[in-house]
Amino acid sequence: MVQSTEEGMQSFEELVRHYSHSCLWWLGPWCPIMRLFHPEAIKPVLQASVAVAPKDPLFYGFLKPWLGEGLLLSNGQRWGWHWRMLTLAFHFDILKPYVKIFNQSTDIMHAKWRRLVLSGSPSLDICEQMGLMTLDSLQKCIFSHHSDGQEKPSNYILELLNLVVRRHQQLLHHLDCIYYLMADGQRFQQVCSIVHCFTADVVQQRRLTLGHVGREAWLQAKQGKTMDFIDVLLLAKDQDGQELSDEDIMAEADTFMFGGHDTTASGLSWVLYNLVCLPEYQQQCREEIQELVKDKALEELEWEDLSQMPFTTMCIKESLRLHPPIIAVSRRCTEDIQLSNGCVIPKGACR
């Protein structure tokens, strides 16, 4: 198993250089795993229907006790219904006020950095700092929860993620009957309970308030204010008037906390790393941003500014291309799939 370390990443890069198209691994004597690297090799699998290439329950199953049946782990009709219900949450009118929240969380992070500089600290862990900032932003955007998390971190989300990664790397821990007897398995259950209790409390209290004041009064009270993710999901209805249940909303909230926290922190950290390696591009980005904020009372970017920074956007996209936060997806074939080179992924194989 490839370890989640610098050495593990280097060995994986060497594997891709040697097998530029694909290679076959065995997870024990019973489970073949086809690793596809080249875009032309991956294309037939990604173009296959959900029925033919559904999400692999082994790869994603360890997340289910934590994330439930949200967008990441659901399939078929359930996934389609949830996607339609969540579309409203990504409307520009909902997202625009979040820029102010991002600015506030970033200001907190910058203030910490300035204090470290004044104290003579020689270095800091950018990934850790970015993770705390993105977690702070998500708590505000999803729950309207304003904590002191960047100053006094208690990162249960990252702990759960590390526990899942460790479980994936230890074959005996793939078995529930063994894993939940181990210290890691027991801690995983404890932290899941903490996270679920927090999410359930927010959702249930918010639904009680909505039921008490009524939908129209609720919307009236929210005019001119930021609607968080929980608000949007509580108000969502399909064409038949069906609403998301508390369990559905909890699953989506936990999924977006997981999916938007570490990935965003990783992407931002790599952007900064790449700009440090290319100081001339770093300077161009700086000048582009300075030009946008030079006549503002507060040196903060607003929603309308995001489309006015083409060079910075190109640098961000190139960094994401070079160092994507998500480096793999996993599917389990229910039918044989033929690749472009004539090889066949047999039914039941993972990729």
Rank of each mutant, 00 (worst) to 15 (best):
F92Q: 14
M133I: 08
P279L: 15
F258P: 06
E7H: 10
D228I: 06
K43M: 07
I316G: 08
M133C: 13
F258A: 03
A41F: 04
C350I: 03
L116C: 00
S147A: 10
L88E: 11
A111Y: 07
L233D: 04
W303K: 08
Y60C: 03
L172F: 12
D136E: 11
S49K: 08
G76N: 06
P32W: 12
T313Y: 05
H18Q: 09
I178A: 04
Y281F: 09
D201N: 15
W218A: 08
F311V: 10
R206Y: 08
M34P: 03
Y180N: 02
R167N: 03
L306N: 05
G70C: 06
D336F: 03
V191D: 05
R332V: 15
E14C: 00
F188H: 14
F188W: 05
E288Y: 02
C177W: 11
D56H: 11
T209R: 15
V117K: 00
I326L: 15
S307Q: 13
F198T: 07
D305A: 07
L172T: 14
Q282N: 01
D231F: 09
Q205N: 14
S147W: 07
V117M: 06
P153Q: 10
G211T: 04
T199P: 04
K64I: 12
A111P: 02
D246L: 03
I326V: 15
G120Q: 03
E69M: 03
V52K: 04
E216N: 09
W79Y: 10
T334K: 12
A328Y: 09
Q169R: 11
L298A: 07
S119T: 05
E302V: 14
G259Y: 01
L132H: 06
Q223L: 13
E304A: 15
D238V: 00
L67A: 13
C277D: 07
R207N: 04
A51M: 01
E304Q: 15
Q284H: 07
S49P: 10
T226I: 13
A51P: 02
A349N: 12
